[in-house]
Computed example of a mutant assay.
Amino acid sequence: MALNGFGHERNHTDLSMRITEIQLAILELLTWHVRAATDSQIQQVLNDQSIPGHASAVLRRLTKDGWIHRRRINVAVPVLSKPLCSWSPNQSKPNFAILAWQLFVRHTNNGRCSSSSCYTDHGEINPRQPCHPTQSLSISQSVRTGKAVHREPCRFSTDQTPALDSLTLVRRNQACRRPRLVNWAAPKAAHLTAGVSGWGRQPLQIEHDLGTTAMYVSSRPYQSEVIWYGEDIVRRRFSGVKKKVPDALLVDRRDNILKVMEFGGQYSRKRLEDFHRTWQPYPWEIW
C-alpha cells in the first residue's frame, strides 16, 4: 500500500495503471473529499496542485468511460474567502444568534441577485447597513433561533466575541443560480480509490454539497500536511460519530482530529449551539 497525494492509502492495481494522473486526482477528489464539484471548482484544485490539463476535457472522458456522472444543473455556487466563524477551545463561546442571522442573510440572497440587497460592490455584507432580506423574498424578515426570534441586523457590533470572523466574501454574480455542469463519482470510481460515491443518494442537498466544495477549494487543505475527509469518509472511518456529522474533518496521518469544518446552511441558533456542544473539544470553522 502507498500513500497518495491526499494522504490515504491506495492499491496499485492493473486498473489504476490505466488512469492518468489528472484523472486519478479528480476521482480521489470526488470519492474522498467532496461529493460533487463543478468544472471550475475542479480546475481550481488542479491548478493549485500544479497538475496540468483542462478539467472539462478530462471530465468528459471520465463520463464516457463510466467513472463519473455529469449533469447540467441550475444551481448557485458561492465563492468563499474565509470562515464566517473560527473557534478554538481556549476561546469564549461565539455569539450564535449573530452567526445564525448572517447565515440566514447569505442563504436568502443566494440565487436572487437583488440590487437592493445589503451586499457591497465587492460582494461583502456592508457592516454599516442593516441587512434585511429584500422585498422580492417571500420569507419573513426574521429568523428563528431556538425558542426566540432574532431580528437583529447583521452589522458588526463591538460586543461580538473575538471568535466571530467577518462575513465570508460571496460574489453575487457567481452565487446566482444558473445552469452549471456538476460532476460526481460513479460506484466504480469509489471502488478504485477505496473511497465513497455518495452524492446521488441526496440530490436535494446539491447546493450545500457544492458549498462544501467551495470551502475545500478556498481552504486548500491539499497544500499542507493535513488530510481532508469528506462527510461520507468521516462516517466510515469514525464509527463513534453518530450525530451531527460535520461536512469535513481535518486529520493528521494517524487520523487524529485537527479541525472540524462545516459549510453553514440556514442554521438556527439552536442547531449552531448543538454543533458547538458536540465538537467543542476541537477547533472548528463554519464557512
Rank of each mutant, 00 (worst) to 15 (best):
G53Y: 11
L167D: 07
S219I: 07
S115A: 09
Y267W: 10
P179K: 12
D159E: 08
V260E: 00
E124P: 00
W287M: 06
V226F: 02
P133E: 10
R178S: 07
E285K: 02
S142T: 08
H33S: 14
V260L: 03
A190M: 01
A163G: 10
Q41A: 01
A194C: 05
E207L: 11
I68H: 05
Q223R: 13
H54N: 11
T134R: 05
T161H: 13
W67L: 08
S219F: 06
A163F: 07
S219E: 11
R177G: 05
R151P: 11
Q129W: 00
S142V: 05
I286P: 02
R253L: 11
R35D: 01
Q160K: 04
W287F: 12
I125D: 00
Q49R: 12
H8I: 15
R254F: 14
E21F: 09
S92D: 15
S40V: 09
D252G: 01
T13W: 04
P162N: 06
R106N: 04
W199F: 09
H276E: 15
R112G: 12
L250R: 04
L169R: 03
I19R: 06
K259A: 14
E28R: 15
K259C: 12
R60W: 08
A97N: 04
Q160P: 03
N90Y: 15
P246V: 02
I286D: 07
T13N: 07
R151S: 12
A175R: 02
L167P: 13
K270S: 04
Q223V: 03
G198C: 02
D159R: 15
F104K: 13
I206K: 03
C131I: 09
H150P: 01
L258T: 00
F275A: 05
R106G: 01
R220K: 11
A214L: 03
A189S: 10
R72A: 06
K270N: 08
Q91T: 04
S86H: 13
T13C: 04
R171V: 05
T213R: 01
S136Y: 07
L3A: 10
I51S: 13
P153F: 15
I286Y: 02
K259Y: 12
G200R: 02
T145P: 07
V58F: 07
G240T: 08
L3C: 09
I125H: 00
A163Q: 09
W67R: 15
G53V: 10
P94F: 06
N173Y: 07
F96G: 05
Q135S: 13
S138D: 10
V149L: 11
W184T: 01
I233V: 14
G123H: 15
S81L: 06
G53M: 07
H12R: 14
T120E: 13
A37E: 02
D247V: 01
D255F: 13
K242R: 03
R277F: 13
E21C: 11
R128T: 06
A55Q: 08
R61A: 12
R171F: 04
K188W: 00
D247Y: 01
V34G: 01
W199D: 06
R271M: 07
R180E: 12
R151L: 11
P283N: 06
V58M: 05
Y282F: 14
A185K: 00
R71Q: 09
L258R: 15
H122C: 02
N90W: 07
P127I: 02
Q280A: 09
S136C: 12
W101H: 10
I68Q: 04
G198P: 05
T31H: 11
R178F: 05
F238L: 05
Q135C: 11
